[in-house]
């Protein structure tokens, strides 16, 4: 199924939290500053309903996304008030992919964990949490995964300041 088909199907089965789509497009001829957008089409989903949205994607017979391939976040810019949480799904049976994007306000960076839906997201969420400071409510094992347990700050945020030292070891 192509992206349009997947989107239609999601609409047809009333996937919870489906906000819209973000398609790649060419530059707007009227607006000289607009350069368009290349890349993948995305489905925009409300963060608080991400888990139930994924449940639909997994369980719907015609979508049948068996696998969560990736879950990560993006901090688009220091000034930007939002994070993006990006999920990539794959269906082995139907041979299609889906990219999902949730726009999450930095001021309240938390969303329900998707581990009950796909256990694959367990480590991805842990990484996301430590790197961006996004809270995944109900995660079964919310420890740091790549960073030391006592690490201060969330390094992948654009406003992160590199530490001067770590346990007396100079980092400069």
């Amino acid at each position: 199924m192509d992206f349009q088909g997947i989107h239609d199907r999601l609409r047809a089965c009333n996937a919870p939290g489906l906000l819209g789509i973000d398609l790649p497009r060419g530059p707007d001829p009227k607006d000289k500053k607009d350069k368009g957008r290349a890349g993948d089409p995305f489905v925009l989903v409300e963060p608080s309903k991400l888990a139930s949205f994924l449940t639909v994607c997994r369980d719907d017979e015609r979508l049948s996304f068996e696998m969560l391939i990736d879950l990560s976040a993006v901090d688009p810019a220091k000034e930007d008030p939002n994070f993006w949480v990006v999920v990539s799904l794959l269906s082995v049976q139907r041979k299609h992919r889906l990219q999902i994007k949730c726009v999450l306000p930095k001021s309240q960076a938390s969303l329900p964990s998707t581990v009950p839906v796909y256990r694959a997201s367990q480590w991805h969420e842990r990484e996301c949490a430590e790197m961006f400071g996004i809270r995944f409510e109900g995660h079964p094992d919310p420890r740091n995964i790549l960073l030391p347990d006592d690490w201060v700050g969330h390094p992948m945020r654009k406003d992160y300041e590199f530490p001067k030292e770590y346990h007396g070891i100079s980092c400069e």
Partner: peptide, 21 residues
């Protein structure tokens, strides 16, 4: 160009994906 894309390929160990913005 402005955009974001996920590309995954078959590495020896499985799917190596890059999501670039």
């Amino acid at each position: 160009p402005v955009g974001e894309v996920y590309v995954g390929i078959e590495n020896p160990r499985g799917e190596l994906g890059h999501y670039v913005v």
